[in-house]
Design a protein around this nucleic acid. Structure first.
Lengths: 344, 344
DNA sequence: GTGAAAGCGCTAACAT
DNA sequence: ATGTTAGCGCTTTCAC
């Protein structure tokens, strides 16, 4: 059985003042190392504070300062490993800068997205970071109307935002495709994310651009799309496998899609890369432990998260030197063993 | 270039009072649907509030209520997929119960762990959930001393805590081992997590118990340990592969360890499950897309997260009916294709 | 049904 | 160097 929690109120600045026989403002000053307080009294106050387990109330402080030193992070779901990496970077930087982070999952449900943003407003977060948002222009408006800075990270929306950090999708896709082309592939498929999403469009057009510049024509039988998950990646690959001729290589929107596709290939006994090469995008930790290890375009996910937080902190402090509104990171092609030249 | 953010103060209860020509207390009542306010004035007030984009300040409210409706979640790192699933469950439940969640990564660094908990104290979170903590008794004391309820989830510490939800490690390990035994394996290895961690000890003793009850003796050449990561799982497997005789099956502390082990096996050209069977623990999403799909013990991670949040909420509201202090979830053996009978 | 006043735990003038 | 006072945006007596 469980016993309900009985809480007693925390010690306050006044309690300390009483013990130290000074006014509460002196305590306030001492605790924030104001030079305006006598060293010895300051010393004594700090001693009492630490002995009594005093913890300044951030909520009271926030009320007067109008700054909570708190940010809100909206992700579709933190269970997605991509978001996990990004949030890890955000939290790390936030922690070092003295910010606490509220985390909320939107699940891409507009109704929930709204609730989440409202709660952030009520909490008076100083700023917001939104990662991988799939929701539309309506939501963007909502955020713009809030009177606090918002930084987007790899947003899928076609909307235009003032501040964002994202991967160079086009370039990454081009590099990946060129790698396949260099290996001699000519029947290359693409398994995308939902169509209409910006990042997918950009990767797709990078893919197409690479083909075009080598005079290779698109292999229409192997153009498919999923939703960025393993499950849909597998399903998409299965659809491709029903059509002929089979591609000799497939470029996937992301690693999860690629991992799903690989599992469909394995299930059919099709060897990777001997029969079909597979390339992903992201370089999730799982990519290097797949079998075979997955060739992919690395996104510096943690670093991007950290950068988003830095930009936000810049916006909040006014120190905006060296910060661009829209920052693009370069992907890096990581060649592993899921790609090889096609058999003759 | 980026323009620093210029914020104007949000509309307050007083602003609305002025416009509605009532006192701010009436506004406060109206907005919280107090029956003490005349329907028509309430109506008018709500209209003004919504038109002006009013958002009640949770920080002001918290100051008077002494409740922030906020909880703190400490994870080692949110980049770990296990924690991602758990936090997803916590956040989901918290959201429905009207709580916001602060997320912090401890990275298992005691110094950072301390900072994180202190910041939670200052933020006046109503409660704390700690997942997969690896830090020792010292930290546990710190938490116990705080005057707010703490719920642990799968803590690795040998310490004893008032409130916790965890998986039944022993039983899960026993089931997994029995599965291997049923298949006819007699040379079974174990790749653990760091020794000394409670969960590892429990899985290991479940493993040993199962062997013992069938009269199979431990295969000492294949007892190894990593740190719960793919990388160390692979390294541990490589060490095992240097010794003879090889095991015909290996049970791993968790899926990541198993996935790493599988990748080491693949790299050496050893077939799974024909030559060596592999079993994991957790059932991460990646497990079903591994090749071959991984046999593992499923932990209901999201559900455990939700339950931890429920318990915490119960502690906070005093509704403790149907809540045990220490709750154990049962794992479920999921047989996939990474296990088979050993070749004769 | 509504207003006036006090107070939550701090910070920041403004005295002294 | 320290104390007094006001106020941050709310909720909650207590009057009326």
């Amino acid at each position: 059985m469980l016993r309900p929690h009985t809480s007693s109120k925390p010690v306050s600045i006044k309690d300390i003042a009483r013990i130290a026989n000074v006014s509460h403002s002196t305590v306030s000053r001492a605790l924030r190392n104001s030079p305006l307080v006598h060293p010895s009294t300051a010393e004594q106050i700090r001693k009492i504070a630490s002995e009594s387990g005093y913890r300044a109330s951030a909520v009271a402080r926030s009320l007067v300062n109008r700054r909570t030193h708190t940010i809100g992070v909206v992700v579709t779901t933190i269970a997605d490993p991509f978001n996990g990496e990004v949030v890890s970077g955000i939290e790390d930087k936030a922690n070092h800068l003295g910010y606490s982070v509220f985390l909320a999952n939107s699940k891409s449900e507009p109704e929930r997205e709204l609730r989440v943003v409202h709660s952030f407003e009520e909490r008076r977060v100083d700023g917001i970071i939104v990662t991988s948002s799939r929701v539309g222009a309506h939501y963007a408006d909502l955020l713009e109307r809030m009177n606090i800075p918002v930084v987007f990270l790899n947003n899928h929306n076609p909307g235009n935002f003032a501040y964002s950090v994202s991967i160079d999708d086009g370039n990454g896709a081009r590099e990946a495709t060129n790698h396949l082309l260099d290996l001699g592939h000519t029947r290359i498929g693409y398994i995308g994310d939902e169509f209409g999403l910006r990042s997918n469009e950009n990767r797709l057009s990078g893919f197409r651009g690479a083909l075009r510049s080598r005079g290779v024509k698109e292999h229409a039988e192997a153009m498919e799309s999923g939703d960025g998950s393993c499950a849909e990646g597998a399903a998409a690959m299965e659809r491709i496998l029903k059509r002929t001729p089979l591609p000799t290589a497939v470029f996937c929107y992301n690693d999860q899609t690629a991992l799903g596709a690989m599992s469909a290939l394995h299930a059919r006994g099709i060897r990777i890369p001997e029969e079909i090469s597979v390339v992903g995008f992201d370089d999730l930790p799982a990519a290097s432990y797949a079998s075979p290890p997955l060739t992919t375009v690395r996104q510096p996910m943690e670093q991007m998260g950290r950068r988003a937080m830095e930009i936000l902190a810049g916006l909040l402090s006014g120190e905006t030197a060296g910060i661009e509104g829209v920052e693009k990171f370069d992907g890096e092609l990581i060649v592993r063993r899921s790609t090889a030249s096609p058999k003759k």
